[in-house]
Design a protein around this nucleic acid. Structure first.
Lengths: 129, 129
DNA sequence: GCAACATATGAATAACTGCTCATATATTCA
DNA sequence: TGAATATATGAGCAGTTATTCATATGTTGC
């Protein structure tokens, strides 16, 4: 980058910058793990579930009521979050209560929310609430 | 929740908890905006692009070389990131350089990476690098 | 033990997504 | 001006994803 010769030579402008980037590049495995975390947070329904649970434990039917969705749709999403260990659950008879389990997902959620609610000066205006 | 009567009455255990959750629940619009941010970060290729760009500006062909992917695949992803204003670009003749633009995406990326690399004690073991 | 209840699960489906392949577009150079 | 170069774009395609609908599973109470 910033080459004296603005020419992609063999599809690479400057071998040094490429190697420097590769040296610090996250690994394929890190990318896979990290993408799974963000993917958990990439669906509006799941975000709203996490938002509801951030106030404390709730059962499936209450979650369905809060979100205005069917029990089944909620259950499917909870299964996904459970498998990712974002949430934990406990049974009390027929009732199953869910709670947030993964603290760093909670932090990512809160940070993301804070940013869309209060964009900084250099932020794009895509997040005004 | 924590009801004396463990019975979902009309699909809601405790109307109070449901209303409390709804009062603080993120709106559908907030969920949509927030999910877009996390979705930008939910693909391994895009994460690796962001990782490469976090070290500084790079051109498309260098990015393709760094990631070991085709120019086309990289370009498509850059278009998406551009449209989300995660990256900005400048042209120097035929060469197009891309750089990270959205500071809060950068912070989310860094925080997420830090967490998978250094899980805390209460973290699930799904992120060990 | 059977009916009621709360939730989980599976199949289907429409919509979505990332990459390949081809080519359009913009820039440079002889 | 035409060829070469770097990148953007679009169609196609296989794989993925969220919800619906149906039903399986586990728990409770009479």
């Amino acid at each position: 980058m910033k080459p004296t010769i603005a020419r992609c030579e063999e599809n690479v402008i400057h071998e040094e910058e490429v190697q420097a980037a590769q040296a610090t590049l996250i690994s394929g495995l890190e990318a896979t793990y990290l993408s799974a975390v963000f993917q958990a947070l990439s669906d509006p329904t799941r975000l709203r579930l996490i938002s509801a649970l951030s106030g404390g434990e709730l059962c499936v039917c209450d979650l369905a009521a809060v979100l205005g969705m069917t029990q089944s749709a909620v259950s499917h999403q909870l299964r996904l979050l459970r498998n990712l260990q974002v949430v934990r659950h406990r049974k009390a008879g027929r009732i199953v209560y869910y709670a947030l389990e993964d603290e760093h997902v909670r932090l990512l959620f809160q940070m993301g929310l804070e940013h869309i609610r209060h964009p900084k000066g250099d932020e794009a205006a895509g997040g005004a609430a």
